[in-house]
């Protein structure tokens, strides 16, 4: 394996990993940016997405349908949770209450998944059209990972453009900066919050479905991914959408190249990166120090 070929495949490996991380981190950061809620249940919503995706594939045989059904179902779960529980806490403005409630949701959701789907893992087959490899500089690279990269780029650009160029996006950004003022101007801030929370949950679910063919759907999948997601959000800056993209890519690169060159310190390197960034820029790369 020549070095250029190796470098190319490793970079693509990192981008494909970044794509999966982006889906969970962008929802997490949007929810924090708009609502100032650190959603501890985000990993569980990612896991729920994988399980709903598995059931959809099992019932219909279509992975593509799972990519639509899982975000809708999990987005609906997120909206219901926001309406029933979180909305009652806004008046208190107590960050600790949000933490406790979302942590409770994470625990309950984990147990509910165990009751509904059982403790055993469930595999989601790679769709036939994405099976196999393509050769890049004589190096094999999975078609499925190229699909992840493409979908990640499309999703990132779409959300970015939505936030920057649409009226709804403008409202979301305005709410994140001064919710009271937006409310005073006649916009239903509560509706914006509900929609953003549902959208963030749906994005996490999409990440879960996309991850399932690589790791299967299993009960422990929320624990590790939520840590990565928090690291990304901290690196990128809490509430910064572009920061979540940059953070995802940085963390994925550190994980992929760290595992290659420093396998004994692969995990530590990611936290080291976070620490360095926090020392240099305490608010994260694109975040504001509060």
């Amino acid at each position: 394996m020549d070095f250029v070929g190796f470098l190319l495949t490793q970079c693509l490996n990192a981008f494909s990993q970044a794509a999966v991380l982006f889906f969970i981190a962008c929802g997490l950061t949007l929810i924090f940016g708009i609502m100032r809620i650190i959603n501890f249940a985000h990993g569980s919503l990612f896991m729920l997405g994988a399980y709903v995706g598995y059931s959809t594939v099992a019932a219909t045989g279509s992975f593509w349908l799972a990519l639509i059904v899982a975000p809708i179902v999990v987005g609906a779960v997120g909206i219901a949770f926001e309406k029933v529980f979180l909305s009652r806490l806004y008046a208190r403005g107590d960050g600790g209450a949000y933490l406790m409630v979302t942590f409770g949701l994470a625990v309950i959701m984990g147990e509910m998944i165990r009751v509904i789907w059982g403790p055993h893992p469930h595999g989601v087959a790679t769709p036939d059209i994405l099976r196999g490899v393509v050769f890049l500089l004589d190096q094999p690279f999975p078609k499925y990972r190229l699909f992840l990269i493409a979908l990640g780029v499309i999703a990132a650009i779409s959300v970015w453009q939505f936030l920057e160029r649409t009226r709804a996006g403008l409202l979301i950004r305005a709410v994140s900066q001064n919710a009271e003022m937006v409310q005073a101007l006649g916009t239903d801030v509560q509706l914006v919050r509900t929609c953003v929370f549902g959208f963030g949950c749906a994005m996490a679910a999409l990440g879960g479905v996309l991850a399932a063919p690589m790791v299967t759907a299993f009960l422990g999948m929320s624990a590790s991914v939520i840590i990565d997601a928090f690291v990304i959000v901290i690196i990128g800056g809490m509430g910064s959408f572009l920061g979540s993209i940059i953070g995802s890519v940085l963390v994925a690169y550190v994980q992929v190249f760290g595992a290659y060159y420093f396998p004994n310190m692969a995990l530590a390197i990611m936290y080291l990166l976070m620490l360095v960034i926090l020392v240099v820029r305490p608010g994260g790369l694109l975040g504001k120090e509060e």
């Binding site: 394996m1 190796f6 495949t9 490793q10 490996n13 494909s16 595992a259 290659y260 692969a266």
Partner: peptide, 10 residues
Amino acid sequence: GNKDYSTYIT
């Protein structure tokens, strides 16, 4: 708890 094995497969 590792999830991505691309580097190891390489």
